[in-house]
């Protein structure tokens, strides 16, 4: 119970920091501007073209939330060391794992706050255009995005403990933006690769978390064609995200423990 309370206190600190800092609002405003611009473009005087809006808005929402999470998560631990705020924290009876879990929960809560704002903007935009939202797919997309943010957060923690803050930030963005390509590219490369290359691709597929699996935006855009994902698929995706997040958290914890204070 005490552990949970500690996690909640640390998470609240991160969440408050995220809400008070201007990064999230700048991202939301920027995103709103771009979404608004998308809505104002006139395409051949034809009304009710909502797929384009859905596509652009969802992509902006996803990328902006990921950017907010990467910026927040990569900063968390290095700043505690730089500002020496970690010493009074760990001087209390708080374990390093508890500390990491608290930070993780805080970043995920900030991600949920950011994505929630975007969801409201998205729904308002769709309503003003007179289009529909496939709610079941949209909510599943939101849930999967949160799982993706969990994965990103743990990856950022591990990276920020393994290398310098700038390098961690760069690598995290690189990982996020190339992860979408990895799935399609590996299949194409596998056909032309030799034995060693194929082994490498196989290894890459299972070692690196496939972030693209948590992007349901394409089906959400074409929601009138595709049904919602079944409970089995959702459970498998949840298990997939949890396993990789736990592995990355374990790695971060191991690095954290080895780090001299």
């Amino acid at each position: 119970m005490g552990e949970l309370r500690s996690i909640a206190v640390i998470a609240k600190g991160v969440w408050l920091e995220a809400v008070r800092r201007k990064d999230v609002y700048v991202l939301v405003l920027l995103c709103c501007g771009l979404i608004g611009l998308t809505m104002t473009v006139d395409f051949f005087d034809i009304e009710g073209l909502t797929k384009f809006y859905r596509e652009i808005a969802l992509k902006l929402m996803d990328v902006s939330t990921a950017a907010a999470v990467i910026l927040l998560a990569c900063r968390q631990l290095p700043r505690e060391f730089e500002q020496r705020t970690i010493y009074p924290l760990l001087a209390r009876p708080i374990g390093r794992l508890t500390f990491l879990l608290g930070k993780m929960a805080g970043v995920c809560a900030a991600a949920a706050f950011c994505f929630g704002l975007f969801m409201a903007i998205f729904a308002a935009g769709i309503a003003s255009l007179g289009g529909g939202i496939g709610w079941s797919l949209f909510l599943q997309h939101a849930y999967l995005q949160m799982l993706q943010m969990l994965l990103l957060t743990t990856a950022c923690f591990a990276l920020s403990l393994a290398c310098s803050p700038d390098a961690a930030l760069t690598l995290a963005f690189l990982f996020y933006f190339t992860a979408g390509l990895l799935g399609d590219l590996s299949v194409m490369l596998y056909e032309v690769a030799g034995t060693a290359g194929r082994a490498g691709l196989w290894l890459l597929t299972y070692v690196l978390p496939q972030l693209a699996l948590f992007d349901l935006s394409e089906k959400t855009v074409h929601f009138e064609i595709w049904p919602a994902l079944g409970p089995g698929t959702m459970a498998a995706l949840t298990a997939y995200a949890l396993v990789y997040s736990l592995a990355l958290l374990g790695l971060a914890h191991a690095l954290f423990r080895r780090r001299p204070l």
Binding site: G183, V187, R198, Y206, L213, L216, K219, T233, A236, Y240
Partner: peptide, 15 residues
């Protein structure tokens, strides 16, 4: 698909 169950997930999630 050489990816096995990961490929199955892709086929379920992507159009």
């Amino acid at each position: 698909d050489f990816r096995g169950w990961v490929g199955d997930l892709y086929r379920a999630v992507k159009p």
